[in-house]
Design a protein around this nucleic acid. Structure first.
Lengths: 336, 336
DNA sequence: CTGTTAGCGCCTTCAT
DNA sequence: ATGAAGGCGCTAACAG
């Protein structure tokens, strides 16, 4: 038995194929009676639309392309989960590309997304190359940037302010009396670089800036690396009394090393992480971290694309700030 | 300027459209001269094939559907990364479905994959419902089961033996003199249940089986949960001297709790995890774990599908055992 | 090894 | 609110 087509459904319902097509895609444009008739025929024949044919005819697919920097960074696992949650029970499918924190790769992946005529595109951060931006324009579909904020998004944006989060964390640490606060970061993608800039500004404004306190590496973040970078920091500045780590795994690695070396947290060394990935609240002592709304970011991004299918969003609706929350825990709490 | 089509390329090269199509898809069927001519025309016009049209005409897409149980379990993040690595630079795209450790969801996701006429399908484990199997048959494409092993795969399979891994880990612990070894597991998907069966067999064969040593929950695995389940185990069997944890995060959580309670590892309590996710080798003491080849599993699965595009694999090639490695660390090493 | 013919299943545009 | 005509870009099946 062959797969039923629109024509079969139309015959079954006693109407023309185009009417069935319309009924399925724009139910509000047809009569109530028609909706029922068509629904019955669809159900009876077990009709499933052919998305390839639809894409070919309309020059527009039901694929939402999503470009993430990494699979192994669990930050993006959460964003993905949110995106899939929002796309579930819609006619849209998500297709993922892995740009590996590399702008060249981003360009290549975007180019390949173009060939499927996506219904929408989701990308990370606000730092795209001019060529990437040209490709996004060419795609002629809604585009959402995620995980950061800007008042001049390419099209739409949902995230939180990395600058504000960094500032709040540092002000908290400074408020607790920490003075020689190191900045420890891995991977050094552009979001991380932005956090570093903010670190410099905040420390500067308190007269605490010392370039030796900044320890970074392009390697991907891990607990093991956190331990290494922490040792490097201690080496650079032995009197260093705290560290702001741009990712939780680095912070966790540093805390393990403190334990091993008998460095007391927070009395001898204060620790603050970023993202609040879960382990931070499990280990002893619990580690302060900036909680970021990752699942919500993914979910909202897809919702924005769905909303923009009908008509472009208003300018205010294009920028969504989901905020963050500094989770203050034992690792930075000095009791006076 | 409109997007160039096959016809444009054909004109440019001075041949017929079908020849261009053939040259692109089956280069070995055309002459060397033709390959060069067509390649030049493609490059000159910057031609990119329209996948929707190809799918419609051939009734077969370039999408490899991949069904994973969860985004948040980093086990599958690694499998995904491997799969994307293998698909990079091929004409195939991966589309992911999240079955959320739920067989009903698996059926629904498979049904939805069918509508894109996938070039191949990747699913987790060897426990599919009869309906799921029917859907897989209907898909008429190569199917790879991953993360387990069976001598009767649905079609093809790549993974490692959960049973052997469990046996080896337990035999090691028993060899170290542990007697009251608990089995601690979360999520209780079917792979985990299989590990539990194996646990029973091994313990039985050594005359060590005690049902009170088995502590499980359907909740998703996490360090926090590991701590809870560990306490439950101690409660059930205070004289318990070790634990086999079906996932590393559970093992890590238990080790945190030991630290808090002053329980010495491994003298008072031995710990063995599963998957070797990274943290286990960072914390103190380092935790024994079964290293699983997750990235390789994903990569191999896609490679098997690519290979099967041309002709079905031989029976031997359908079953790939990537093995595992018990990483013995301080948490189970008793020095006599 | 290369070409001819005839759609694939749906949607766009324009009528009514 | 519903329908008719035509074509989207590609490939299967058969010839030569």
């Amino acid at each position: 038995m062959k797969k039923p087509t629109l024509i079969d459904v139309a015959q079954e319902a006693g109407v023309s194929p185009i009417t069935v097509s319309r009924t399925l895609r724009q139910p509000d444009l047809v009569s109530e009676a028609m909706r029922l008739k068509v629904a019955a025929a669809v159900k009876k024949l077990n009709y499933v639309p052919d998305s390839a044919a639809a894409t070919l005819a309309s020059n527009r697919s039901n694929i939402i392309g999503m470009l993430i920097p990494s699979f192994s960074n669990s930050v993006f696992a959460d964003v993905l989960a949110g995106a899939y949650e929002a796309a579930k029970d819609t006619r849209f499918n998500i297709q993922i590309g892995n740009m590996q924190y590399n702008q060249q790769m981003e360009e290549a992946q975007l180019a390949s997304f173009l060939s499927v005529k996506p219904a929408g595109l989701i990308i990370s951060g606000i730092d795209q190359t001019p060529y990437s931006k040209a490709l996004l324009t060419q795609a002629q579909c809604p585009v959402v940037q995620v995980m950061d904020l800007s008042d001049q998004p390419f099209d739409m944006i949902v995230g939180f302010s990395n600058a504000d989060a960094t500032t709040q964390a540092l002000e908290h640490m400074i408020g607790q009396g920490f003075k020689k606060i190191g900045f420890v970061a891995a991977r050094m993608d552009l979001r991380t670089q932005r956090r570093m800039m903010t670190y410099r500004e905040v420390m500067q404004s308190h007269g605490l800036l010392d370039e030796r306190l900044i320890v970074t590496t392009p390697e991907p973040s891990s607990a093991e690396l956190g331990r290494k970078l922490f040792n490097q920091l201690l080496n650079n500045v032995p009197e260093c009394d705290a560290g702001f780590f741009s990712n939780d795994d680095l912070a966790v690695g540093a805390s393990f090393e403190c334990q091993r070396k008998g460095i007391r947290i927070p009395q001898d060394f204060g620790i603050c992480g970023f993202n609040d990935l879960g382990t931070t609240s499990q280990i002893y002592p619990e580690i302060t971290s900036v909680h970021t709304p990752r699942f919500e970011v993914g979910k909202t991004a897809v919702e924005m694309i769905l909303a923009a299918q009908k008509e472009p969003l208003s300018n205010e609706a294009r920028i969504v700030d989901l905020g963050f929350e500094l989770k203050v825990r034992a690792s930075t709490l000095i009791t006076h």
